[in-house]
C-alpha cells in the first residue's frame, strides 16, 4: 500500500492531533545514556551493530538529562545513587518515561540487602519493567516497543496535571 492510497488525490490525511503527537514522540524518543551496572553493557549491546536499536528511532543516546525523554535505569540502584537518580529524573523535561531494566532495577533482584533500593519505583515512577538478569538486548527492545504502545495510547487530558 503506497501513501497515495491513503492520501487520495487531495494529498490530505485527517487524523487527531493526539495520534500525531504520540506518533512523533514514539519515533524520536531519546533515551538518556544512563548506565549503572551490568544491564548497561546489554544496553550498549542493544545499541551496537547486532541489535541496532536505532531501527526504532533511538540511536541518539543523550548524556544530558535535559535533552532526553526516556530514562532507562540499567542496573542496581544503591542507596547512595538513589538521590542522584531522582535529581536526574527531575531535570528531564516533560513528557518523560522510565524503563526499569533488569531485575535489580525492577525489584532489587538477587541483592536483597542494606545497600540496594528494592525496586527503582521507590525513587521514580516506572512505566515499563523489563525482566531478566540482565535482560537480553531483544528484551530491552521489546520493553521499548511496549513503552511505545503505551505512549500511543496517551491522552492529552491525562497529561494535564491537576
Amino acid at each position: 500500500m503506497g501513501v497515495e492510497q491513503k492520501l487520495g488525490n487531495l494529498g490530505i490525511v485527517t487524523t487527531t492531533l493526539e495520534t500525531t503527537v504520540n506518533w512523533a514522540r514514539t519515533n524520536a524518543m531519546w533515551p538518556m545514556l544512563f548506565g549503572l551496572a551490568c544491564c548497561a553493557i546489554e544496553m550498549m549491546s542493544a545499541q551496537a551493530a547486532d541489535y541496532d536499536m536505532s531501527r526504532f528511532g533511538m540511536e541518539l543516546m543523550r548524556p544530558s538529562p535535559r535533552q532526553s525523554d526516556l530514562m532507562i535505569v540499567a542496573g542496581r540502584v544503591s542507596r547512595k545513587m538513589a538521590p542522584v537518580l531522582r535529581r536526574l529524573y527531575d531535570q528531564m523535561p516533560e513528557p518523560k518515561w522510565v524503563i526499569a531494566m533488569g531485575d535489580c532495577a525492577s525489584c532489587g533482584g538477587v541483592f536483597n540487602n542494606y545497600a540496594v533500593v528494592q525496586g527503582v519505583d521507590e525513587v521514580v515512577p516506572v512505566d515499563v519493567y523489563v525482566a531478566g538478569c540482565p535482560p537480553r538486548p531483544e528484551a530491552l527492545i521489546h520493553g521499548v516497543v511496549t513503552l511505545f504502545e503505551k505512549v500511543k495510547g496517551e491522552k492529552f487530558k491525562d497529561l494535564v496535571k491537576a
Binding site: L36, A37, M81, N112, N113, A115
Partner: peptide, 11 residues
C-alpha cells in the same frame, strides 16, 4: 566511589 555499592560481601 560507592555509587554502585551492592553489599555483595555481606550478602
Amino acid at each position: 566511589i560507592g555509587f554502585l555499592h551492592t553489599g555483595v560481601e555481606k550478602n
